[in-house]
Nucleic acid binder design. Structure first.
Lengths: 153, 153
DNA sequence: TTAAATGCAAATTTTTTGCGTGATG
DNA sequence: CATCACGCAAAAAATTTGCATTTAA
């Protein structure tokens, strides 16, 4: 396993143990799946991946494990209505995403262009006790722009 | 009707006409409801409001009307999974929101603390053809903080 | 043997769709 | 009379829940 992935899995395991729950083989596989990709998988995609090793795994177990990770702040959940939620277990802290309206891909966006506004500053300015933020940019990704071009010609 | 509300309703009517659809009385009432509040109502809340005037209105008509508004960029849809979407018809352009995890309130956040990063700049930096953004801050609103205090004492 | 983890299926919730009726120009 | 609007109900999709069984310390 890639050392960076291993490191994240260890972090996630540690926080589950702190929560007082066991990291069973199925749960471990969920963590590994989340830590192994930056594609922001859906619950179904995680389910399929886990089933490759433990074919009898149910969807409820995936939801359950993700719930535990959410409680410990070890996974970022991007909610959508109508389409399945996407999960980021590689970088669970708040960070911006690029979302393609055509192919539904979700990419991490690096911050070089954006000055991050700290939650503390906004909390102070608004009186809210803020715990996380969500920043998404919606549009058409370069690949889909190409495809659209191709179709037009 | 408040002149600011009237102005927004007019804008929304105009864009629906441009789309080539009629602004029927029920649709007009949906627009008015959206323009009359900054509470970011759900589809159900809009439905209830419209039914006060047109009691036979169906939920499908609300969804249908909102779909038309989305097509013309005249309403901002905040998607949530598990809980109903929230709509902002007063300020349909992308702007940040404060979302209370306790009472589920959604408030507009004024920009004084945040330097807005233009879509153009991010588009250029990423190669995406971006059309909108979403920025949410999640936490506990001042009112709920008070209630929590009260409970503790 | 006791508690936690899990599979399974049903229930819930939100949104969408299809179809037939009715209003309107 | 032709088209658009709309109510109604079913369908679809995602997530949650309840319960019985299995697993494992």
């Amino acid at each position: 396993m890639d050392p960076q992935v291993q490191h994240r899995v260890n972090e996630m395991c540690a926080s589950m143990s702190e929560l007082g729950v066991n990291v069973t083989p199925r749960r471990a596989k969920v963590l590994e799946t989340l830590a192994s990709t930056d594609c922001h998988p859906t619950v179904n995609e995680i389910h399929s991946e886990v089933r490759r090793i433990y074919p009898s795994t149910s969807l409820a177990t995936i939801y359950n494990t993700i719930e535990l990770l959410k409680e410990t702040g070890q996974v970022l959940e991007l909610e959508f209505s109508g389409s399945p939620n996407r999960y980021d277990g590689l970088r669970p802290e708040s960070h911006p995403h690029l979302i393609c309206l055509s192919c539904r891909s979700v990419e991490d966006m690096d911050l070089f262009e954006i000055e991050d506004v700290s939650l503390d500053r906004v909390s102070h300015a608004t009186g809210y006790n803020l715990v996380r933020q969500r920043t998404d940019y919606y549009g058409i990704c370069p690949v889909c722009q190409e495809s659209d071009e191709a179709i037009r010609h």
